[in-house]
Design a protein around this nucleic acid. Sequence first.
DNA 1: GGCCAGGCTAGCA
DNA 2: TGCTAGCATGGC
Length: 317
Amino acid sequence: MQRVQVELLPVAPYNFDQALTYLRTSPSAVLENISEDGTYCRAVTINGSDMLISIRSTGTVEVPHLTLEIYGRQVNSVATAHVAQLVRRIFSLDEDLALFKASCSQDLVFRNLLERFYGLRPVLIADPYESLLWAIIGQQINVAFAYKLKLALVNLCGQRLCVGNREYPILPRVQDVAALDKQMLRACQFSSQKATYLISLSRAVESGRLNLEALRTLPYDEAMATLTGFKGVGRWTAEYVLMRGLGAPDIIPAADLGLRAIIGRAYGLGRTASEVEVRSLAEAWSNWRGWASFYWWLELQLEKCMETHGFINSSNI
DNA sequence: GGCCAGGCTAGCA
DNA sequence: TGCTAGCATGGC
């Protein structure tokens, strides 16, 4: 097992702790592990080779510095460069927060979030395919059950990476999900529809009929049309994949129930906002609607955490 | 037992 | 193009 250390310099300001808070409170973080001392760990697969990445902050918000460690059988310079690039993308390290802030600060309600979450940038899902799996699983069911289903899928067909005396779950490979029998998922409490969608979409990705990476270069409307052309992928799912999986900064899943609820409360509607109302309010965050929805999601998660535990720290979430 | 949950599809006008 | 009913399955 090799170990390589890389120093990363995010564009300032950058608050890594906020990113960890998001992950700690996120019901979608199944493969990520956040330790109490503020170290992020997860297994990733680079060119077919499984590695463990470990990241911790070694700087401040104004002078950010992250230390990345990579553990794997063969961590050569090419793999190291790939991992560093992946980490920069997951944590949005190269983006300029000032542009986002300048664009959204006219909205006084949102400005409050900008101040409270100073230095926060979106945390993306490491792999677009991973975001597609999670989006299908998360459709229409409560997040606690969605988390349970994600774990079930990982346990059913995901491998594990051993580093030291610990095991880390690896995202199931496309071909392994594509090869699943529907009944195997049904036995893990997946609905018939979800099982069908997961398998058929994985087969589409495996065969190349659905090329998720290629969506990066398409205009939003074309990428949306491509995704929603597949059964099981509606507008919400496509927007979720573009925003969380591919990092599209201006895509907002406005139909998202959680987003509608938190926005309804924040803007004093006294009820859940409608999708149309969310899209209308989101005009104020134009060009950055995806980033803004990420901020709202963190706000929502913190609110739920307070409801459940009465306080927020690393041990109760 | 009933309503809700980080929706999608098919059918219809 | 836009609306609605039906669907599926735990959690609370």
